[in-house]
């Protein structure tokens, strides 16, 4: 944990208001789960990157490394009946929703035991059981769909809310504005989570976006919005709780702009010439959501350093098993070509 301690030392104490504060057992349990879930996503994505390099995963593969705090913090605010939908940088969302890492990995390798029987791939996976509604490959197209899930919740009066994630690139899509208007007009139970990782593929936000404070995007429709430090899982959780409660109470949609950062390229084939190595290095060293949070847990006495390491060992085992499962599973049968076109 030398690295985590060094990170903590490099940060002003003001960034860690929880430092030294004793936490109750429920909070401690939640925090341990945060750490576990973020690390699970990190190790999963690292392994996916490896498998891609070995040619076992094909096509587009967008890794979530660096952004883990966003989905882990948000997921903790939800009830099982609530829905989640996102675009294509979706592996983290699926793991946070409780989907099986082996099934997700096997979909990445295009095998029959994957969540979509190998027919969806990295960008198109779903779990009815976990209320995860994809995994959509078209930038911004999931936003009206998430709004429609919220519409169904209101229509059925089931008390559920839908978390609709999208990125800073998608935020400029026309259908996002169309969705905001309808969600506000009909007071739909939806929280729009904009994951602002600063780059729409290779275009820095300042080069594509006139108003870079994306939390203001709903203001024309009178939708409340706020910026959140998306590198801090506890801040995400607190903001998420407020937003989910707001929309569950029937007050309409809410916008959260998560300021976050992805360490890897847009997809595996991205040479990342649009930003400096130093910029990435700076974020990793000073703001890594897992290292900083781990250091905080140690400082606050929630977990010991050796406990963090034990969590990592256990996760690596899970991920290795997932990778084996994903590479050992058979490819889909040729008969599957023509199934699932129509019900």
């Amino acid at each position: 944990m030398a690295r985590a301690e060094a990170t903590a030392a490099a940060n002003p104490e003001a960034e860690f208001p929880a430092s030294g504060r004793a936490v109750d057992s429920a909070t401690a349990e939640r925090q341990k789960k945060f750490y576990h879930d973020m690390l699970l996503i990190r190790r999963f994505e690292e392994k996916a990157g490896q498998l891609y390099g070995m040619g076992l995963i094909g096509g587009f593969c967008h890794l979530y490394i660096g952004q883990e705090a966003v989905v882990v913090g948000m997921q903790a605010t939800l009830e099982p009946k609530d829905q989640v939908i996102t675009t294509y940088r979706d592996h983290g969302h699926m793991l946070a929703a409780g989907m099986d890492p082996s099934g997700v990995m096997a979909e990445l390798t295009g095998r029959s035991s994957g969540y979509s029987k190998g027919k969806g791939g990295s960008m198109h996976m779903f779990s009815r059981e976990k209320n995860f509604f994809g995994g959509h490959g078209i930038v911004g197209a999931n936003v009206p769909i998430g709004t429609g899930l919220a519409f169904a919740n209101r229509y059925l009066r089931n008390g559920a809310v839908c978390i609709t994630y999208f990125g800073d690139g998608a935020a400029n899509q026309g259908q996002v504005f169309e969705s905001f208007n309808m969600a506000a007009l009909w007071k739909l139970p939806v929280v729009y989570v904009i994951e602002n990782n600063q780059y729409a593929m290779g275009t820095a936000i300042r080069r594509s976006t006139a108003e870079v404070e994306l939390f203001k995007r709903g203001s024309a429709d009178d939708i409340p919005g706020e910026p959140v430090d998306g590198m801090d899982v506890e801040k995400v959780y607190e903001a998420g709780r407020k937003a989910v409660q707001w929309t569950r109470e029937g007050k309409g949609p809410y916008v959260l702009e998560m300021k976050t950062y992805r360490y890897r390229g847009h997809s595996m084939s991205d040479p990342a010439k649009y930003r400096t190595r130093e910029e990435v290095q700076q974020m990793r060293e000073k703001h890594d959501p897992i290292d900083t949070f781990g250091a905080r847990l140690v400082r606050n006495g929630v977990m010991r350093d050796d406990e963090l390491k034990a969590v990592d060992r256990e996760i690596r085992q899970t991920i290795n098993h997932a990778a084996e499962f994903a590479t050992d599973s058979p490819e889909p049968s040729p008969d599957e070509l023509y199934t699932d076109v129509l019900k």
Binding site: I145, T147, G148, F151, Y155, Q175, E178, N181, M182
Partner: peptide, 21 residues
């Protein structure tokens, strides 16, 4: 009645269908 936003309400319809309607 919807606003004149075809892409928005067509997508909203798809989501509503996913959501059980």
């Amino acid at each position: 009645d919807t606003p004149i936003t075809e892409q928005g309400f067509a997508g909203l319809g798809v989501g509503a269908a996913f959501g059980g309607l």
